[in-house]
Design a protein around this nucleic acid. Structure first.
Length: 260
DNA sequence: ATGCCTTGTCGCACAAGA
């Protein structure tokens, strides 16, 4: 079973690219971020034509997440618990049934937090605290659970081509990295780093200043696996070549293979 | 120091991204 996550930077602008990638890699589950669409305008039909069930949690203009699954999506939960006043569409959580039992997925688009000194940064940190609480709840269920998405956190210096350039950026602040570690150390396995210790393993290249051509990337899209999901882990990868396609997203897909 | 690109918005420039 292959499960992928990808920040597509707008479903309307990226629809052909996403469909091409789905035809090429055929993931069983795909978590999409930054759909930038309200639910009623999401182009469900072309995904359903490829055999996917579709659940979205969108908003106008910005943010928005979606789950695609070849198996039916069950017990769909929208919004990250913990703040009823939070109107930003950044989280959707659902389960699928497999021969090895149920597997649950949380698809997240964690706030960017820039620029520092504005309300955006404390919002990011508070959102991470809520994510930790939600993850604790899920872990207590002791099932196969995974948190996938755009975390907007560079965990370690090795996860950036030029870590010295990110010192004043919310993605690389000690507080952001501390909360990412606190989440991970609840008992999750960070899939990609468990599969490879290779340098220059990136998931994002800025559109500007020739970042892709210089391989000036960062690793900010992550997959965290509960112990029960980690037991099923058989491989992982990053579809880096997609960044070189026409009209690319600035992020590329990250995926895991599970023995389920 | 700033913008560099890209997307979406009831565009006619701007916000937001990272």
């Amino acid at each position: 079973m292959k499960i992928a996550t990808w920040n597509i930077n707008g479903v309307k602008a990226r629809i052909d690219t996403v469909l091409e990638w789905l035809r090429e890699t055929s993931p069983d589950v795909a978590c999409l971020q930054e759909i930038k669409s309200v639910d009623e305008n999401f182009p469900r039909q072309p995904f359903e034509d490829l055999g996917y069930n579709v659940e979205t949690h969108g908003q106008k203009g910005f943010n928005g997440v979606a789950l695609l699954s070849k198996q039916p999506l069950e017990d769909v939960q929208r919004r990250l618990p913990g703040d009823d006043a939070d109107e930003q569409a950044r989280f959707i959580d659902a389960a699928v049934s497999t021969e090895r039992g149920a597997i649950r997925f949380g698809c997240l688009y964690l706030p960017n937090g820039n620029p520092l000194g504005t309300e955006k940064y404390p919002y990011k940190l508070a959102w991470m605290e809520r994510l930790i609480v939600h993850a604790e709840t899920r872990l207590r269920e002791e099932g196969a659970y995974m948190l996938l998405g755009d975390y907007n956190v560079i965990p370690e210096p090795i996860d950036a081509k030029n870590p010295q350039n990110w010192g004043d950026d919310a993605l690389f602040q000690p507080e952001s990295r501390q909360r990412f570690r606190a989440l991970e150390y609840l008992g999750f396995t960070e899939a990609v780093r468990s599969c490879t210790e290779a340098e220059e393993t990136y998931t994002f290249w800025d559109y500007q200043a020739g970042a892709w051509q210089k391989n000036n990337g960062i690793r900010i899209d992550h997959i965290l696996l509960s112990p029960q999901a980690t037991d099923l882990l058989s491989g992982c990868g990053i579809d880096k070549h997609v960044r070189g396609w026409e009209k690319p997203s600035d992020h590329v897909p990250v995926w895991v293979q599970l023995a389920a």
